[in-house]
């Protein structure tokens, strides 16, 4: 197991495009962490920097306390499995798992022990003599995981691994992944652009956008106290609407008056709005929606529902009003 520490890490490609900016994050030894954010938010680059696939441009990256800024990938004991994995079609499951060890000239007995131990951990002992064409998608995933784990890595990196599965297989794989995390006891970083997937993992989650961290927290925290409009919108997805409203002090209550609707501001928000000097001004109101089959554009036209939760954001900075 190994802890991973990023301090002010920036990755700028030669084209001048910064994929990751001033990224600071501590991943504890043996922690299961989810990185999420929309496409091109820098998640894959973070994983690739940990693995040594991308040299960092500035800052400090430590694995297990040792600075590894530009160390070669093979020197880092990191297991990886990305969404577009494949199994070697002409090899049995046994040979698939032991392939890299064989290439590296490891003795047959050592390979056998490692393959059998991993097959046991991933509960695929019965599949060792099968060929990939005989396996279903879920079994293929387990084989790929066993293959990535064969070197007993100190950290395990997964990029959108469950994205290619259907809903029921995904649920099973997620449960297996969680139980495996307890079995293999290694630092596990899982990156996905699917906020629902991230939420269902129910572990510490990092929300990223444009190469930067927007918020770190457990899912409940990210949903109940989003730091800004983006985090709220990303975490709730299509179950989130927004509207510009004016905060008006009525005779009996403080009201938020929007385009075609008005509502009483929940009492817990009033001190924050007063403190920030938002009385009589326009703010951005975010609200949860029970169900929304509409596209994103249509969400602008929605109105809060009776059981919506509310969030207020500064209209210019889009930061949560707290």
């Amino acid at each position: 197991m190994a802890g991973i520490s990023f301090r002010n890490v920036t990755k700028v490609f030669p084209s001048g495009k910064a994929a990751v900016k001033d990224f600071s994050l501590e991943i504890q030894d043996g922690e299961f962490l989810v990185l999420t954010g929309p496409e091109r938010s820098g998640k894959a680059t973070v994983l690739r920097m940990i693995a040594g696939m991308e040299p960092i441009s500035s800052g400090e990256l430590r694995i297990d306390g040792t600075a590894v800024e530009n160390g070669r990938p093979e020197k880092r004991n990191v297991g990886m499995i990305f969404r577009h994995f494949t199994l070697y079609p002409g090899m049995t499951v046994y040979d698939n798992i032991g392939f890299l060890m064989k290439l590296q000239g490891e003795p047959e007995e050592k390979i056998r022990l490692a393959v059998e131990e991993n097959a046991k951990t991933f509960k695929i002992e019965g599949l060792l003599s099968c060929y990939p064409r005989e396996l279903n998608d879920l079994q293929k995933q387990y084989v790929a995981m066993a293959r990535a784990n064969v070197h007993d890595p100190e950290a395990f990196l997964m990029l959108d691994l469950l994205g290619g599965l259907d809903a029921s297989a995904r649920k099973k794989a997620r449960e297996r992944l969680k139980s495996l995390y307890h079995d293999i006891k290694t630092t596990l970083v899982y990156a996905t652009d699917d906020a629902k997937e991230a939420a269902l993992m129910d572990v510490k989650t990092v929300v990223m956008r444009r190469g930067q961290i927007e918020q770190v927290g457990f899912v409940r925290e990210l949903k109940d106290h989003p730091r800004n409009f983006f985090v709220a919108q990303f975490m709730y997805g299509s179950g989130f609407g927004s509207s510009e409203v004016e905060i008006v002090c009525g005779k009996t209550a403080v009201e938020a008056v929007g385009n075609g609707f008005s509502l009483d501001v929940p009492p817990e928000w009033i001190p924050s709005l007063e403190r920030g000097g938002y009385m009589g001004k326009k703010v951005l109101l975010g609200y949860t929606l029970s169900e929304s089959p509409c596209g994103v554009e249509d969400l602008e036209e929605t109105a809060p529902e009776a059981d919506s939760s509310f969030f207020f954001f500064d209209r210019d900075t889009r930061m949560a009003i707290v």
Binding site: E54, P73, G79, I81, F82, H84
Partner: peptide, 18 residues
């Protein structure tokens, strides 16, 4: 494009090759 992605992901993760 999928084949290219598969090649890249496999070489990254299996052969540890950039």
């Amino acid at each position: 494009e999928k084949v290219a992605r598969m090649i890249m992901d496999m070489l990254n993760t299996e052969a540890m090759a950039t």
